[in-house]
Each structure stands twice: as C-alpha cells, then as structure tokens.
Amino acid sequence: MSIEKVWVVAEVNDGVPTTTTLELLTEARSIATTVEAISWGPSTAAAAGVLGEYGASVVHDIGDLGDALPGVPVAAAMAELVASEDVPDVILVPASYDGRDVAGRLSVRLDRSVITNVVGLTADGDEVRSEHGIFGGAQVVTARFTGERPWIFVVRAKSFAAESSGGAPAQVVELARVDAGAVDTARVVSRHVEERSGPKLDEAAVVVSGGRGLGSKDNYAMIEELAKLLGGAPGASRAIVDAGWVPYAYQVGQTGKTVKPTLYMACGISGATQHLVGMKGAKNIIAINKDQDAPIFSVADLGIVGDVLKVLPKLIEALRARS
C-alpha cells in the first residue's frame, strides 16, 4: 500500500503559519500526493492562502479554541475525523510545546505509537523511514513503524527547508470540536510575552549564546553586547535559563530553539547533548570554554580554551574599535 495521504498539524499565529509548519508541508509533498493541514485558532482562514502555497489542498479548521490548551481538543477532533473513514497514512506533527501535547493525546486515542525527534524522512515504496540523531548527533538512527497506519511522526524544527509549490489556496473545511469531557479542562487564564529586541533567535544569521561559564547573571550583558555588535541574537544554554538568568525564549537546544545560523558562538557552554542537538547545524561554530575536554570543542571550527570572562571583554573591545 503506497503512501497516499499525509496530514500536517499546522500551527498558525495571527493568520501566519509557523516556519516549522511550512517545513512539514514541504516535506509532506515529497512523501505523498495528497497533503492536508489540520489547524485551529481564530485566524486559520487567513492562512489558507499560504498553507495552499506550500502544498495543502485542504485545511481542516477546528476553529477558535478560546482559552483551552490545544492538545486535547485538537487530538480529539483529529481522532474523530480518522474514525469517520478519513484515514491518512502519515501524520506529521511539529515538535513544539503544543505539537507534543497533540501527538501524545492522539497516540492514545488512535492506539498508535509515535516516533519523535525526527530530523529526516524518506518515503520508500510502502514505508516511511525516519532519521534521528542520538548521543548529541554522533550517530544517526533510522527507524520505521511496523504497525498499522496512521503513522505519527513528531518532527524537529529546521529539519527541512520550506519551499513554495505555488499551489492554490487550501480549501477550508470545518472540523467540529468534540466534547472530550474531563481531560479537556486545562484553561489558560493569562498569556505573558517576554519581549526581546533584535533579530529572532531562530532566524538570526549570527547567534551568540552564554552558559554557566559566565558565572553570574550580570555577566550575560556581555553576550547581549557581543550579539548586538555582530548583528545577531543572544541565546542561552538550558542551565542558565533554569537558573533564571534569562527567559525561556532564549534557550537553544533539545527543549528550546533549534538554530542554524551562519555563525554560532558558544561562550561558557560545555556542550551537553541537550544543547548540541539545537545548534550543531550551524555553518560555523566558535566555542570559548575553560575546560579543554568540554564536548563543545568536538563540534567547534574554532575553539578557544580560556575563561570567557577574560576573552569576551577583549573581544568586545576589539569589535567596538572596528565598528
């Protein structure tokens, strides 16, 4: 049985699909002939043009979910659609906060397991193979489903390049919300946006990140200054985000943002697996760290074994002098 239909869980903010959504739609086109999007929110109709342009023929629109967390209502509506005979072969879900909730809930409702942390997909006749980096990306695992369809893959951001197919706007089809009962009772009471200035972390050509080696929260100012001098975005390791030095929006890594800039500078970051998977795709990597055995040096094009608190002030001074 060949692969005919793929659903893409499409996240849309203010009428604009996320970049990962467009990446998944692009990849879905190379797997199957029919690509459909599943979406929700108050502005899905406004996104139909772009979703179509990247390959979706139909967008199943669950509508405005109000203050509900999306995981349960989206998965419940999708399961209902599967039950009504519309069975896709493959479901692609972005590895975002809400995407992972959708995948977990859907997995149980359909009684299908999920394959997560996917960074590559290949359709080969009747099967789809997924690729995963393990041990910080040192090895590549290829996996596949052996059970019944649909096969649910949770895909990491920036695994594919988004390319327009020039398709017509997707046809918006209403997908009814189902009453999921007690499991659908988590409600958002307020939303907080932690503003940051400068280019977006996951789109910047240069990312300068700081880690525990900075020693204190105050020293993070050097990371911000260096990022500014290079026209880039400041980032952070999980360690200093967890320590409360910078907001979560700055985090690069497995549970944070995946970045693929022209240059990634890791300052005082040891390079735990959790961090490496989020930045290893950078074209060029500079690492500054006191510990010469730090794993970050194994991926760095240029490694400076030294104290960031000594190297960074001189570097900043030299760059200021040239700007």
């Binding site: 090895q139 590549v140 596949r144 052996t146």
Partner: peptide
C-alpha cells in the same frame, strides 16, 4: 512495540 530501528550509522 509497533516501531523498530532499521539501522544505526555514525553521522
């Protein structure tokens, strides 16, 4: 399990 690893290679 309804999934399996097909291969593991060095990146």
């Amino acid at each position: 399990a309804s999934q399996e690893v097909v291969s593991v290679v060095a990146a």
